[in-house]
Amino acid sequence: MTIIETQNLDFAFSKGDLVLEGLNLKVEQGSIYGFLGPNGSGKTTTIRLLLGLLPNSKDNIKLFGHNFKNDRINILSKTGSLIEQPSLYEHLSGFDNLEITRRIRNANKNSIDKALELVDLKTASGKKVKEYSLGMKQRLGLAIALLSEPELLILDEPVNGLDPNGIIEIRELLLKLNKENGITIFLSSHLLSEIEKIVTHLGVLSKGKLVFQGQYNDLKELQNKSATIHIETSDNQKASEIISAKFQAPSLLNSHLMVHYQDKEQIAAICKLLVETNIDIYKMQLQNNDLENIFLEITKN
């Protein structure tokens, strides 16, 4: 089942200045969808549109298969969200903040304890929020989003500003929620490294356009496609001619050859060819383009 679906979603804050252009998002149930894009690419705008915080005159946003405009209350009752910095009443305790949302959502009284336990804030629940650290506020924001056990969590930069420990904690919590409770998670980030460890699906947004959407493994495939083998031999020129006969012609660099990587069998075959022609191999190294570079390349193009 598709949980979030947008069809040709456009948005402009002022006439003619499109912030989002033809966005076709598709988020499947049970997935952790990473919504990536540089700052200013339109991630928060998309999230605000998904949650009805920005006006959208067209009927092109569907959540849980229902049109947002026609079924707002039902959709929001199944959705927990955290947009940018969590919205918290700083003069109140963590418990009171949860109680406000609990009452509006008409959730069980024990849901507060459950949520506090989940984010490990039980002991600090009586403290005023203004005394919380940034990480605690972020976790409280998550606890609020988790009240009434939502089926979908929409999180905008949930690890923004957190230290590495905080990032790991949030990451583990999201994985747990997805695996144990089956919650579909849609989370945005401007850093692939922050979320690559947990996402199953990715959407990459650049200048308001979705430039990549698919499974995380599809991105890994792209990574493999851009990988190269660096080979240093006793006779690079001759080695190049031999490899060219069977594979794509390598680039001849100063001290080594560069061959586009296909698969591991290709490495074995090149090795064999060179040994058979009595060329000594000094070095053979697979160079993977890291995902961050691929992300940068995609968004740059």
């Binding site: 605000r48 949650l51 009805g52 915080l53 707002r72 209350i73 039902n74 929001l76 009752s77 959705t79 969200s81 947009i83 910095q85 969590p86 919205s87 918290l88 009443y89 700083e90 003069h91 949302t101 509006i104 959502r105 609020i144």
Partner: peptide
Amino acid sequence: NIEHKNNTWKHIFTLPIL
């Protein structure tokens, strides 16, 4: 000012309430 100062409107508007 309670809502304005704490920037909580966005949270309220994402809750299932008219």
